[in-house]
Amino acid sequence: MFPEGGPGAGLLLLRLSVALALLLHPSGGPLTQAMLALTATGLFLGVLTPLLAAVCCLFSFYDFLVMGGTPLPEVGIQLLTAGALALLGPGAHSLDARLFGRRVVTLPPRKKTRVGE
């Protein structure tokens, strides 16, 4: 869930590209820009990455259908990259990895019992 090495660095770059696409988006009022900046900051840091990437997908789709501010090829690229990020997760270089990283669960040994007792 939190790959390291090359795949982790690739996910970091993917998070950065989706966050920059949000920050460079020109349309919307001050409230919309603040929400986009907050979402981009969360993606940059790797906090709740699948959820924020899904929000990015929804915003790109909404922007294309309602606001008409983004041409179809650009929306397609934004949907594909944010969708890939939502499915792949944040990677090892994220706050999600620090907060929810790999844990070792040790189960106590099972007691041997006889059948029927």
Rank of each mutant, 00 (worst) to 15 (best):
I77H: 04
L31R: 05
L85Q: 01
G89K: 00
D96I: 12
P7V: 04
G89H: 02
F59I: 07
T49C: 01
V115Y: 08
T32A: 12
K112T: 07
P26N: 13
L51P: 15
G29P: 05
G8V: 14
L95E: 03
E117R: 10
T70F: 01
L79T: 01
F59Y: 10
M67H: 11
V18F: 00
Q78G: 06
M35Q: 09
P90Y: 02
G101F: 02
P30L: 08
A84R: 15
Y62S: 14
H25F: 10
F59K: 01
G101P: 03
R103W: 06
P30D: 05
L88W: 15
D96T: 12
L58R: 13
L16S: 05
A34S: 14
G83Y: 03
A84W: 11
F61C: 09
A92Q: 08
P30H: 14
R110V: 11
V104R: 13
T113Q: 07
G5Y: 08
V66P: 02
R103Q: 10
L13G: 04
C56S: 08
C56W: 01
L22T: 10
T106S: 14
D63T: 15
K112E: 11
A82I: 04
K112H: 14
A97M: 10
F2T: 04
K111G: 06
L58E: 04
L36Y: 04
R114H: 06
V55S: 14
E117K: 13
T49P: 01
T32D: 10
A37G: 15
Q33D: 12
G69L: 12
P26R: 04
V66F: 08
R110W: 15
P90G: 10
L31I: 05
H25Y: 15
T41Y: 01
G116K: 13
V55M: 13
G89T: 01
P90F: 02
P30K: 06
S17L: 08
I77W: 02
A82M: 05
P73K: 02
L72Q: 07
A92N: 06
A53Y: 00
H25D: 10
V105P: 02
L52M: 06
T39G: 00
A97I: 09
P73L: 05
L38R: 12
G76Q: 02
L65F: 15
G91C: 07
F100K: 04
A84G: 07
F2A: 10
R15F: 03
M35N: 14
G5L: 09
C57V: 07
